[in-house]
């Protein structure tokens, strides 16, 4: 994919919808990929992707270019995902009080989120760690960010990144053993 033109952010922030679409076409795959790993469900990932780009459009004028657009998008994507997960947790807790059976939802989620056995097992593994740990693991293993870049993106220090990665991997190893995951 060709790089974005230098002036595309300026044109998009001035209201040029075609320029904004260029930004979307260039970065939507990355935003959606991170959102899907964070959220697990396709429909939730699409909802987060939509939220991210509406937020970007709203705040594009205040984007000062100190960090790269990609880092900015990573941060917004993780924040939107965490907020949605928190909201969903509250919703499930309320529903539980009203007699909702969370086991049914869990099965349904698994049905909709998996496309194959490997994907299923990885999704199950990622559900074993906290959303904060998941963000660190995803940025490191799938996006290839350094510890410093993860720290910058999530607004935490490098030692916190290291600590979250360690705890996440310990939890993944335990879950892998317990579930007998073959991958």
């Amino acid at each position: 994919m060709a790089d974005l033109a230098d002036d595309v952010i300026g044109r998009a922030s001035a209201g040029d919808i075609a320029a904004f679409e260029e930004i979307y076409r260039y970065h939507a795959g990355m935003v959606y990929r991170v959102a899907l790993r964070m959220m697990a469900r396709v429909e939730d990932a699409e909802e987060v992707t939509q939220q991210v780009f509406i937020s970007v459009h709203k705040h594009l004028k205040s984007f000062n270019g100190k960090s790269s657009l990609k880092t900015w998008l990573y941060r917004i994507t993780v924040n939107c995902s965490l907020n949605t997960l928190k909201a969903r947790k509250r919703h499930v807790e309320v529903a539980w009080v009203e007699g909702f059976d969370p086991e049914d939802t869990h099965d349904n989620v698994r049905e909709t989120l998996t496309r194959g056995e490997i994907h299923q097992q990885i999704t199950d593994l990622l559900e074993e760690i906290t959303p904060d740990q998941r963000a660190c693991i995803l940025f490191r293993t799938q996006e290839g960010l350094s510890y410093e870049e993860i720290a910058l993106t999530l607004g935490i220090n490098v030692n916190t990144v290291r600590s979250r990665l360690k705890r996440a991997r310990e939890a993944l190893l335990t879950a892998r053993t317990r579930k007998g995951v073959a991958v």
Binding site: A28, Y32, L36, E46, I122, T141, L172
Partner: peptide, 23 residues
């Protein structure tokens, strides 16, 4: 082994075209 598993997760296709339309 766990790290290789996570690194080898196939990238999903992008979001559906409806997402851009809604945005």
């Amino acid at each position: 082994a766990v790290d290789a598993t996570l690194k080898n997760v196939p990238s999903p296709d992008g979001p559906s075209p409806y997402v851009w339309e809604r945005i």
